[in-house]
Design a binder for these strands. Sequence first.
DNA 1: ATACCAAATTTCGTATACAGAATGCTGTTT
DNA 2: AAACAGCATTCTGTATACGAAATTTGGTAT
Lengths: 216, 216
Amino acid sequence: METLTPAKSLVQMTYEAILDEICTGSLTPGTRLSQDHLAAQLNVSRQPVNSAITMLKAQNFVEDTGRRGVVVAAVDRKLFDAIYQFRAAIDPLAVELSIKRMAEKDIAEAREIIARGKACVEAAQSQAVLQADIDFHSLIYQLSGNAIIIDTMHLNWRHLQRSMRKVLQHPGMTAQVWSEHEQIFDAMVAGKTAQATALMRAHVRDAPNRISNPKG
Amino acid sequence: METLTPAKSLVQMTYEAILDEICTGSLTPGTRLSQDHLAAQLNVSRQPVNSAITMLKAQNFVEDTGRRGVVVAAVDRKLFDAIYQFRAAIDPLAVELSIKRMAEKDIAEAREIIARGKACVEAAQSQAVLQADIDFHSLIYQLSGNAIIIDTMHLNWRHLQRSMRKVLQHPGMTAQVWSEHEQIFDAMVAGKTAQATALMRAHVRDAPNRISNPKG
DNA sequence: ATACCAAATTTCGTATACAGAATGCTGTTT
DNA sequence: AAACAGCATTCTGTATACGAAATTTGGTAT
């Protein structure tokens, strides 16, 4: 019989809880993270909180003030741009690797995500649109079968989640995004590797511009 | 006056100490990491050791046994291949970004690394060759100016360090590598972006084959 | 001799305790 | 009134303590 882990460690739970609050905006940039306060809030001792903060620091979600303790890191345009440069290389690779590995059920899942994304655009539910965006690209990372891509991009999207929350207030901006998603995925299903990767590369390359110059 | 940090935290020092031992092979795959033992060895309490191990676990340098404690992760050919797939996308990007950003002193540093690499190949000092290899590629990541590339590839090379230690026992295998490094860098200095990135892509693409079929 | 069960020991995860550093508060001096 | 010195307070990093889980050991029964 398989000995499935009963519950995650407190460090892991604490880490995820804090990271969620940072990425969803409950904890805004500059907010000081008091270990005592967080420990009380999450009903754990300071020990798991301290470990969790150590990890968040290593991943640049919080920053040392030099003084005492850490604060939630600022949302940084430079970091956003760096991740998009990075994605311009990695996302097309993930597309290429995925094409050979897609199964029927993966295709169905992607179609569901695309439908959901479009529906949320219609309904102007910006947070749900962002989640669908994350889901779409994460699915492709998963399908790539490359553990490095999966792990690395998971973290990067956590940062993007922070950056994009602000920006996605502009409704309508994402309509074209979902048309592009669909085109990319159609090309993948059709096995057109060169076309799919080119579309993905363009998709990622254009995204930062759309955010700089949102024209509705 | 600048308040330079007097010393790194014990967690950080402990993390680096353990990671070094894993990557240099002092701690071999499968070795159990006892917190008590490590704490005694490093003259710290179990608390920093515990935090450090949590981080190493998240980065796949150690793995849970399901039982008690963690062991040094196996050197995994799948992981090696995944990183090289990844590098095939990222290293050319780093080259492209670096070309516009190289200063005289960077060029001198690269030349020094290349000279050192070649000398170590001649002297058949495989560990020093590996270090020069790491230095060469890390310099390009640095020059890219992209923080995500720098951080991500730093971790990935730690994994590669483990994989390549074994393999680099084959002397002579690396002679061509350093010729390629030089060609890549010459193209970079000459500002030939397309050529430099193409050479880097080929360089990374061929490396895993050279390791699978070493022919001296 | 081998297999099995229970006590003892190891060791991990988490909580709590402690020490040092940084901030703030208060009283005094100019 | 403003500024500074020094004490009190707060808070982090690290050490130690505690409880639970798991492995090992020793003994017994077959």
